[in-house]
């Protein structure tokens, strides 16, 4: 099931545009200014390299509330339903117990305001990655059916500076984050990578964790720390792409290759179905069938790569 869903997502990517809005906030101190600037620069570099990407980068003095509002309004005009939207916030966030705000030059914007700016945008697959301190405080306002929201903290009360953005960026540049190796880094894969590294950072350094990343993709969920897709958790995030890697967009150029792609999809679906039946099967039978499918798939891929 996982594979077939991904293919449904992945193949139209050739035509879809991904709108990236990379927002760098106010550092306040030299250390943070330097760090946020470096993070935004890296994020820009990674997203600009993605196929069919349209990148809006706003940081430093350019990142003002007015400018951001204009940017989202422009995207609302351009984005179609099949397009993707990825909004990433890097900086400081605050939460006063009621309202989350992202720190900018001039007036800050609130989670509620950001949610309003996103409403007119037609792209069905939306991802908001809020990597700031207290970002958990933005989750309730930003969550919406079908939109994936990732926050660095579980609540607005986790107010210390976060390491999550470091690992989120690492996920975007490290091919190993693409856990299923289908050349599409999904929101769930990137989240799992960054969450795992963040957790290990605190464990290894024997520090009390001051941030607990969360992910949600429904309008009602309070989010999951470690979502379990077998329980239906983070199913939208699993289908929401963050980056397309490799040469996937060039795959279907000839009729022969299109036929092979169809065959590949069939085998992949058979593998997914087999995996779903695994618990009810004898181990030997499962292995034999899986082995046969995997060999078939490998041979098809061999032909595709010729």
């Amino acid at each position: 099931m996982l594979r077939s869903l991904l293919l449904v997502v992945a193949l139209p990517l050739c035509a879809a545009t991904t709108f990236y809005v990379n927002i760098g906030g106010l550092g306040g101190q030299e250390d943070y200014e330097t760090r946020f600037k470096a993070n935004i620069e890296e994020l820009d570099k990674l997203t600009k390299a993605a196929p069919q990407a349209k990148v809006f980068s706003l940081s430093g003095t350019a990142a003002t509330k007015v400018k951001l509002k204009e940017t989202f309004a422009q995207i609302a005009k351009e984005a179609k339903a099949e397009d993707n939207l990825v909004v990433t916030l890097i900086g400081h966030g605050t939460f006063d117990g009621v309202e989350y705000k992202f720190n900018l030059h001039g007036p800050d914007f609130s989670a509620k305001e950001l949610a309003l700016w996103l409403v007119p945008i037609g792209a069905k697959k939306q991802l908001v990655v809020n990597t700031t301190s207290a970002s958990g405080g933005s989750l309730a306002e930003l969550r919406q059916e079908g939109r994936t929201v990732i926050t660095a903290t579980k609540s607005g009360t986790e107010k210390l500076s976060t390491v999550f953005p470091r690992y989120w960026l690492e996920a975007l540049r490290d091919p190993s984050a693409d856990a299923d190796k289908n050349e599409v880094l999904t929101a769930l894969e990137a989240y799992r990578y960054a969450e795992s590294k963040t957790t290990k950072y605190y464990e290894t350094n024997k520090r009390l964790a001051t941030e607990h990343p969360m992910i949600t993709d429904t309008s009602s969920s309070n989010g999951f720390r470690t979502p379990d897709v077998t329980k239906g958790e983070a199913m939208v995030a699993m289908r929401t792409p963050v980056l397309v890697l490799g040469t996937l967009q060039n795959a279907a150029k000839t009729p022969e290759k299109q036929a092979l792609l169809k065959q590949r999809e069939t085998v992949e679906q058979q593998i997914d179905n087999l995996k779903l039946r695994k618990a009810a099967m004898a181990a030997d039978q499962y292995r034999t069938e899986l082995r046969n499918f995997l060999l078939q798939l490998a041979r098809i891929q061999q032909e595709l790569d010729k």
């Binding site: 594979r3 856990a179 299923d180 190796k181 289908n182 590949r264 992949e268 593998i271 995996k275 292995r287 899986l290 082995r291 499918f293 995997l294 060999l295 798939l297 490998a298 041979r299 891929q301 061999q302 790569d305």
Partner: peptide
Amino acid sequence: FQSLEVAPGFKPAQKLLLELE
């Protein structure tokens, strides 16, 4: 087998599987 069970489309693993076969 374990690798491809997680990621059936993992090309380097597919290639090595065919070589071994």
